[in-house]
């Protein structure tokens, strides 16, 4: 469904992505991990063209991102994205947050959009909050709304960029639960996260990145197994993370 072929990216002379390649198949859950500054977020953002790249190509659902004049809004509307800091629109209430893109991008009728929005809101367990403003919700609730907002667009794949790293510890669980249930339904997902327990539980595959390059791209069982299939660099990272 998504092919990432030899993608490289530079900020001026600093290389942030180094010849990254991988394939995400339909229904697959892929976790991307690695130390901070390793390019995980940048890589995931190139998939819906929020970040550009200078070399290589990314093919999303048959559309090549390197070609000129592609309909980016149309592409992005099919790729759901959840951000580290939620990025709900603070001047709109929860319902309005959910319907805005459905009406303006997918050209849905207002009633249809609202129906769909409330269904997704119900799914993340927050239907009683539909008239509140984002600032009135907790971080965990905001993130669940953000997931619902992305789901409203009927995405073919969901991208999560450290969805729990801005949350207080007691709220991490409620957000991960929503993501787990999505995975169980067979949603295709790419998720940047440091939550290794969660990764072990839901992911089919783990990509480990360092210094902009993909170091490991292994089946989850192999990555977390004890059979020393992974590089010393990844072992060191894992041990550091699991200690805490």
């Amino acid at each position: 469904m998504i092919q990432i072929n030899n993608v490289s990216k530079w900020y001026d002379k600093f290389q942030v992505l180094n010849n990254c390649s991988t394939v995400i198949n339909k229904g697959e859950v892929v976790v991307i991990c690695g130390p901070s500054g390793s390019g995980k977020s940048t890589l995931i953002k190139t998939v819906n063209a929020l970040e550009d790249f200078q070399q290589g190509d990314i093919i999303v659902n048959g559309i090549s991102l390197s070609q000129k004049g592609i309909d980016l809004p149309k592409l992005r509307s099919r790729v759901g994205m959840v951000f580290q800091n939620f990025e709900l629109f603070p001047h709109l209430n929860i319902s309005e947050n959910l319907v805005l893109a459905q009406i303006k991008v997918l050209k849905r009728q207002k009633t249809e959009a609202l129906e769909r929005g409330l269904k997704m809101l119900n799914r993340v367990g927050l239907s009683t909050h539909k008239n509140k403003f984002p600032g009135q919700l907790s971080g965990g609730q905001q993130q669940r709304v953000a997931i619902a907002r992305a789901l409203c667009m009927d995405p073919i794949i969901m991208l999560f960029d450290e969805p729990t790293s801005a949350l207080d510890p007691e709220m991490v669980g409620e957000v991960l639960d929503v993501i787990v249930s999505l995975a169980e339904e067979g949603m295709t997902m790419m998720c940047v996260t440091h939550e290794m327990g969660f990764a072990k539980k839901v992911s089919h595959r783990v990509i480990f990145m360092d210094h902009g390059a993909i170091i490991e791209d292994l089946k989850s069982a192999d990555f977390f197994g004890n059979n020393k299939k992974i590089s010393p660099r990844a072992t060191e990272f894992l041990s550091k993370i699991i200690q805490h």
């Binding site: 809004p73 509307s77 951000f83 629109f89 893109a101 992305a150």
Partner: peptide, 25 residues
């Protein structure tokens, strides 16, 4: 800037992001 990115990630165009997300705020 992340608000702009969030709007774009939902498929809103630059003009839509400006008029519905950024300018009102």
């Amino acid at each position: 800037k992340r608000q702009m990115a969030a709007g774009q990630a939902l498929g809103l165009t630059y003009r839509q992001c400006m008029s519905y997300v950024v300018l009102p705020q």
